[in-house]
Design a protein around this nucleic acid. Structure first.
Lengths: 211, 211
DNA sequence: CGCATCTTGTGAAGTCTTTCACAAATCAAC
DNA sequence: GTTGATTTGTGAAAGACTTCACAAGATGCG
């Protein structure tokens, strides 16, 4: 009922459900059925119930789920009640776009430290943080109690930087560099690649055109 | 052997294999085994062979795959031989970071048109393209022979813009707005959400901490 | 209260994806 | 040309995820 290995797809859907619950809450709805959540998210009611059932039973038969209560549960399951201390490595265009992206902070992801290896940038202030040189990485990651690192560096150096990050004891990394990285088992590593997504679309397009 | 429904996971891995082949090529290797590709990509040799077998047989038993030939095949399968005409909607921070991201063009994705609804921005030039107002959307999408749209607009208007895009006949969309969008069956729609990824990491972190 | 209606939670069935395991193909060496 | 060492391509088995379908709990109404 709880624990065990949860499919990654389930975790992602939980995030979506949480988003939808926010919308329902904003529009004054107090109760939702699995059917309503499914319709909003392009999935099925059974899927919604199965996803939730991995973690407990949060609904009332005949009634559905309390919007507020379920949102609280999901936030708890996803670890979103708390404040995560984030470091951004790479203050280039993508890095800074991420840095200035509002919703992160609103959800509890607080970018408290920024690194870059460009001497021009080191020392500059961005909002309320200062850009640090890469030589300070190990020390600052440890002493800053960083929970999570966002990697926005060129592909060529990504693996090296990741190794440093892991060595400094960080166990969660979100990678934006377009390269396949390796990390020890105990480190949660996710990669986002715009190229990969575009290529999947390119595949779909070719399919469409030749059909 | 060819065609049929290909798992999305397979398509994504093909993109990865192509990346690795580029690396192998750069380092002068002429032949790779499924084992070598698997090791590089964190999967298994059987998986690599199965993935490729959906599209044909490209290797030589006892030898492996020719790096150059397999790369060509993959580019063809993924539709990357050609030039895709891309429109970017939304010239905000994320939009412009995408616009200036070099690798797109190198892979054949050419952003030829940019839209934004901010009167301040409309008319300005960015590189060799001019930012157009949203009222020109329908006409320019059609006449510009746009294959693919990148959506980088606020979540609140994303669905409306998507509807316009679909109505203009575009059949492939990459969405960066943090909202769940709906499109007709025949439209290939993918969404990238940094928040979703971060939340999955947050889940993993909670797991780690409580274990 | 009893009956009709609704909606959850969940085993069981079904479907999709990955892994296994081995015959067949290729090459080198003797 | 036969043997030995490789490595592919692929049915079959195993595993993972999704969908089905229904009992059980909850509510409202006469």
């Amino acid at each position: 009922m709880t624990d065990k290995r949860i499919p990654d797809s389930t975790v992602r859907r939980l995030s979506l459900y949480l988003r939808f619950l926010g919308e329902f809450e904003a529009s004054g709805v107090e109760t939702v059925s699995s059917e309503a959540l499914a319709e909003r998210g392009g999935t099925t009611a059974a899927q919604v119930r199965k996803d939730l059932s991995h973690f407990g039973s949060f609904g009332k038969r005949g009634l559905g789920y309390s919007v507020g209560a379920l949102a609280r549960e999901l936030r708890h399951i996803l670890g979103l009640g708390r404040h995560w201390n984030v470091a951004l490595i790479g203050a280039g265009r993508i890095g800074m776009a991420l840095f200035e992206y509002g919703p992160f902070r609103r959800r509890g992801f607080h970018i408290s430290t920024v690194f870059d290896n460009d001497p021009e940038k080191v020392g500059q202030a961005r909002g309320d943080v200062t850009i640090h040189g890469m030589e300070e990485l190990a020390e600052r990651l440890k002493e800053g109690h960083i929970d999570l690192v966002i990697l926005a560096v060129p592909a060529t150096v990504a693996q090296d930087v990741l190794d440093d990050v892991v060595r400094a004891g960080v166990t969660a990394v979100l990678n934006y560099a377009p390269t396949q990285l390796r990390a020890p088992e105990h480190v949660a590593l996710r990669s986002v690649s715009m190229l990969l997504e575009l290529e999947a679309l390119s595949y779909a397009l070719s399919r469409q055109r030749s059909a």
